[in-house]
C-alpha cells in the first residue's frame, strides 16, 4: 500500500476500538483459513501437475473425519464471530440512562438537528466529548441513514417512525457523517460534520447565538397556537384526556388494549388521531397532518414529556 492512504477511519467513539478489534479478529481468522486453502491449492497445483497425457492418478479414500472437521471447526469459529458481533450490537441498542438527547430530521437532501436547549443546526452536529449522546431520528420523506464512520455506527432514518442511535465521543475533533441509504438525486451531498467539543466549549456553543427558546418552550407555544389546550386541559375537564403525566405511562384504549405513551404513540396521535383512541373518549380530534412538520412534532413531544404530575396543588394551577 503506498504511503498516505489511510487504512482505517479515526477512532473517536467508545464503540470504535471494539469494532476495530472485532475487525482484526475476523481478518485474522478468515484470513488464516483462506491462506491455508490458497497455500494447499498452490502446493497441489504444482506438485500434482499433469506430467503426461495418459497419467492415472491414485485413488484417494474419502474420510468422514475430514468432512466433519471442515463442517464443525468453521462453524465453531463462526459462533465466536456471531457472539462478538452480537455483543456490540446489543450495546448499540442500549443507550445509557441520562444520555444527552439530540433530535435529527432528515429530508431530501439535508439534515436538520435540534438540541433540547433550543440550538438548531443544519448538516452539523455539535456534541460534547465523554458524554453519551442519543440521537432520535426521523425523516420527512424517504429513507435516509445517519452514518458516522469515526464512531463506527449507523442507523436508517425512516419516515413515519423514530429510530435512535447513540454514541459517546472519545476524542475532540471534526468527523464526517454521511447519508448512507440512497435517497435520490443529491444523496451524496447529504452529509456533514460532527464536531466533538470539550464540555465547556459545548456549553458555550449551546448558549451562543440566537434562539433562546428551548424545545420544550417551543412545544408549549405550539400547544397554545394549535389550540390543543381547548380539549387537552390540565385538570382533565376537557373533551380529551389530560396530557399531564401521560408520557412514559400505559394508556388504556377504547378497544381494551393498552399502549405505552412514548414518542411514537404521541406522534401517531397528532397525525392520525383516530388510529388508537384513549378509552372513555370520542374520536373527535382532527388530524394535524400538514400543519406540523417533524421538527414541530418533536417539540410538542418534548413539551408533553415535560408535563409531570405536580407535587403540590399550587403548581397544578400553573400547568396548562
Amino acid at each position: 500500500m503506498p504511503p498516505g492512504i489511510p487504512l482505517a477511519p479515526p477512532q473517536a467513539s467508545t464503540f470504535a476500538p471494539g469494532v476495530d478489534h472485532l475487525f482484526l479478529f475476523l481478518l485474522g481468522v478468515t484470513g488464516s483459513v483462506a491462506i491455508l486453502v490458497f497455500v494447499l491449492i498452490f502446493i497441489f497445483a504444482v506438485k500434482y501437475r499433469r506430467r503426461s497425457p495418459d497419467e492415472v492418478p491414485p485413488r484417494v479414500h474419502e474420510t468422514m473425519f475430514l468432512e466433519v472437521a471442515w463442517i464443525g471447526i468453521p462453524f465453531l469459529l463462526m459462533l465466536v464471530m456471531f457472539g462478538w458481533g452480537a455483543e456490540i450490537y446489543y450495546e448499540e441498542f442500549h443507550p445509557p440512562p441520562g444520555s444527552l438527547e439530540i433530535f435529527v430530521v432528515g429530508k431530501q437532501w439535508m439534515w436538520k438537528l435540534q438540541h433540547p436547549e433550543g440550538k438548531r443546526e443544519i448538516d452539523e452536529l455539535h456534541v460534547p466529548v465523554g458524554r453519551p449522546v442519543k440521537l432520535t431520528m426521523t425523516s420527512e420523506d424517504v429513507i435516509h441513514d445517519f452514518f458516522i464512520p469515526a464512531f463506527r455506527i449507523k442507523k436508517d432514518v425512516l419516515p413515519g417512525r423514530y429510530s435512535s442511535l447513540w454514541f459517546e465521543a472519545t476524542k475532540t475533533g471534526t468527523y464526517h457523517f454521511f447519508c448512507s441509504q440512497y435517497c435520490g438525486t443529491n444523496h451524496s451531498e447529504m452529509k456533514g460534520w460532527v464536531v466533538v467539543m470539550n464540555p465547556a466549549e459545548y456549553q458555550q456553543w449551546l448558549s451562543g447565538g440566537a434562539g433562546g427558546e428551548t424545545m420544550e418552550q417551543a412545544g408549549a407555544r405550539l400547544f397554545q397556537k394549535l389550540a390543543c389546550t381547548n380539549c387537552h386541559r390540565s385538570d382533565n375537564s376537557g373533551r380529551a384526556p389530560t396530557l399531564v403525566g401521560v408520557y412514559g405511562r400505559p394508556v388504556k384504549l377504547v378497544d381494551g388494549s393498552t399502549v405505552m405513551a412514548d414518542d411514537a404513540y404521541i406522534r401517531e396521535s397528532i397525525l392520525r388521531p383516530a388510529a388508537r383512541v384513549a378509552a372513555g373518549y370520542q374520536p373527535i380530534m382532527p388530524t394535524f397532518q400538514g400543519q406540523v412538520n417533524e421538527e414541530s412534532i418533536l417539540q410538542l413531544i418534548a413539551y408533553i414529556k415535560s408535563l409531570k404530575i405536580p407535587e403540590s396543588p399550587e403548581r397544578m394551577k400553573a400547568a396548562p
Binding site: 478468515t30 483462506a34 490458497f38 463462526m78 462478538w84 458481533g85 456490540i88 455506527i153 449507523k154 441509504q181
Partner: peptide, 22 residues
C-alpha cells in the same frame, strides 16, 4: 473465497453496522 470470507464480516452484527451500505 475472498467474497465468502468477507461475508463472515458482514454477518457479524457489530461489524456490519459500520460497513453496511459502504
Amino acid at each position: 473465497s475472498m467474497g465468502g470470507v468477507t461475508g463472515m464480516f458482514l454477518a457479524s452484527l457489530g461489524m456490519d453496522v459500520h460497513v453496511h451500505d459502504t
